[in-house]
Design a protein around this nucleic acid. Structure first.
Lengths: 121, 121
DNA sequence: CATTATAGTATATGACGCACACTATTGTAA
DNA sequence: TTACAATAGTGTGCGTCATATACTATAATG
């Protein structure tokens, strides 16, 4: 049985992850990867992604022109390889800059100039 | 006229911000604040929040038990002051931990082993 | 006292990504 | 062939965020 705090954490954490999955995926696609391998390799690096989340994401990004895809049927099983497009590279770079900005802003409000939690104000 | 890359950036950035607003808000509520003051003070610190975003957020968080509110009618205009509840403090602390985890994971995939972008591997 | 401007609070609406629970297909081992 | 793992895909529901809008009360002005 979960505490109240933890119950809400689930949703909150999910929202927190939003958008970051996109960066994670884009970051891996300087070299071609297919869906299943992305799930695995991102999971290894501490970024859990559900297949049901990743596949739609990949198709979205492709439709937006950030990714290019290509079926490989030579191998044992047919796999759909995705790769960053030129636009995708631009967007990824910009996104990283944005991301760092957000991290910085948030760090400021989270750690208020060193933390005076002893109350000596 | 925006480039393709920038057009998609808008949405992507918005998604990236999602959830971070919650942390930002919670971080300011160790001391009581009302809606308008939060918009102002967060804006000052680089976190833009629309009033139409903040107010529903505050009510959500209160309904979830993370915040307590109290009308102050003594002052010139009636203002609704929000403050972290005990649960809210717990959740906030956990959220910060989660956030730092996400930042760390993402930093790993964004800067692969310190950035070997000269290709000397 | 009536009117207007402004600070502050509230809500409805729409868009969209994410998780979850499926289904479908293919290859491999039993 | 059957059963299971690998791979890709879809549909639904939920929740947050932005935009626009309305509402209330005070202050200012005539």
């Amino acid at each position: 049985m979960m505490s109240d705090a933890q119950k809400h954490m689930e949703k909150l954490m999910q929202e927190l992850r939003r958008g970051t999955i996109t960066i994670g995926v884009l970051s891996q696609l300087s070299e071609p990867q297919y869906g299943y391998s992305l799930v695995t390799m991102l999971g290894d690096k501490g970024i859990q992604v559900e297949p049901g989340t990743l596949y739609p994401l990949l198709r979205r990004l492709e439709k937006q022109g950030l990714l290019a895809s290509q079926w490989d049927t030579n191998d044992t099983r047919p796999r759909k390889y995705y790769l960053l497009s030129e636009t995708g590279k631009e967007v990824y770079d910009l996104l990283v800059v944005e991301w760092k900005g957000i991290v910085e802003s948030l760090n400021h409000v989270i750690n208020p100039k060193g933390g005076n939690e002893d109350g000596t104000d």
